[in-house]
Simulated scan of single mutants.
Amino acid sequence: MPVVHAGRTFSRAVEDLRQGFAQRELWGHLGWQDIKQRYRRSVIGPLWITLSMAVTAAGLGVLYATLFDTDIKTFLPYLTVGFIVWNFMLGCMTEGADTFISNEGLIKHLPAPLTVYALRTVWRLALMFLHNLLVYVVVLAIFFPYLVQDGYFLSPGGLPQPGLDWTIINAVPAFVLLALNGTWVALLFGIISTRYRDIPQVIGALTQLLFFMTPIVWPVDLITRKLGTSAGWMVWVAELNPLYHFIQIIRAPLIGSQQSWHHWAVVGGITIVGWALAMLAMRNYRSRVSYWV
């Protein structure tokens, strides 16, 4: 009969998770301090987050709207929200992989659950997400009359969109779901990266490819308009990209775009599988992280 190590039990992993969420004052304070420290002695402080996002969205919005021959009035909100959500997901993957490595000093000297450090990372990224939402508010205020129109187009000849309505509130549970996924990503990638230090570099390289493969700066219906029926395989490439579904459950309600239940179904399935893998990693390797870092 196989012997199970006393420290390798799901009950210990669940307890680490429970205590981590319970210590919200600790990870909340650490995450906020990260933002303050990053912009220490800066004149406008964290508003640099908002300003950099605004410049990026405006510059690339005008560029790609011209290249794709789309209407800037509806395309810029589409691209802006895509960038905001992408930045959050990118942070969960890249900074999440460094979660325990960057907290080496605290892990060795502070008796806190490992979940605290993952939540610190996600909370910091959530604060940056809220700062970036100010850009969305400004864009929404400028282009609101065009986004509330029933049947507006993201690209000429594309699918008609229903327009902004009360379903905008769906963005709230969508972000909660996104943050929950960001937490298991930080836990799982963080544990793996402490053992194999090449993982953060691999993730950084792959995210550049994923950015261009994900419908962030290009609408899916733009492909069918440009390539016709021969673009079917490219649509499937977008649909098989899990990041697309995470972006769409937030972007669709925020810009009044067509919402589909299958995006939520895919995200829900990934959430279950991701947390199962994270809990398995916590069960087997939680006690080793302090030695690996």
Rank of each mutant, 00 (worst) to 15 (best):
L134M: 15
M279Y: 12
W184H: 13
W184S: 05
A57S: 15
L154Q: 08
G268N: 07
F100L: 09
L134G: 07
L125A: 10
R18H: 10
G157M: 08
K36T: 08
F100E: 06
R24H: 13
L30A: 11
R18E: 08
A13T: 01
A6P: 08
T229Y: 07
L130G: 14
I249E: 06
T94K: 09
A6H: 14
I142S: 09
A278D: 03
L79V: 11
L110K: 02
G158L: 10
S290V: 15
G61N: 06
V289Q: 07
W275P: 03
A231P: 01
M279C: 06
Y285R: 13
V135Q: 09
A6W: 12
L26N: 03
V14G: 00
Y78T: 02
G256N: 04
V293K: 05
A205Y: 11
V293Y: 07
G190Y: 10
Y39P: 01
V116E: 07
G31C: 08
L51F: 14
A252F: 03
A171I: 00
A97N: 02
P160A: 15
Q208K: 15
A65E: 06
S230L: 12
V14E: 09
L130A: 15
E95M: 11
T207P: 00
H262I: 04
I101H: 06
A205E: 03
S230M: 11
D71P: 01
R286W: 06
M53Y: 05
Q258E: 13
T271K: 01
L147K: 04
L147T: 02
M213F: 13
I270S: 00
Y285Q: 12
T194H: 00
G151Y: 10
Q33H: 11
G59K: 01
K108Y: 04
I249N: 02
T9N: 12
V176I: 15
H263W: 11
L206E: 02
Q259A: 13
H109L: 02
L209W: 07
P46F: 13
T66H: 12
I250K: 00
R124V: 00
Y117F: 15
L154K: 02
A179S: 07
Q161L: 05
T194Q: 08
W264R: 01
A238D: 09
L159D: 10
V135S: 11
E239R: 13
F21G: 00
A171E: 06
V138F: 12
L180V: 11
G105A: 13
I101K: 08
G182Q: 06
P111N: 09
V55A: 14
V55G: 06
I142M: 08
T224M: 07
I270W: 02
Q258H: 14
L17E: 06
A97P: 04
F100T: 06
W292L: 12
Y244C: 01
A13Q: 04
E104N: 13
Q208P: 00
M93G: 00
T50K: 08
E239K: 14
Y78L: 11
F88S: 01
N103Q: 14
Y64G: 00
P113F: 10
D71G: 04
S257C: 01
S42Q: 13
G96V: 04
F68L: 15
V185F: 10
A281I: 05
G20W: 10
A54K: 03
N181C: 12
A252I: 00
A22E: 11
V4Q: 14
V172A: 14
F83Y: 14
W218F: 15
F10H: 08
A13G: 08
V43K: 09
L177Y: 00
A186M: 02
R197M: 03
H262Y: 15
L180C: 14
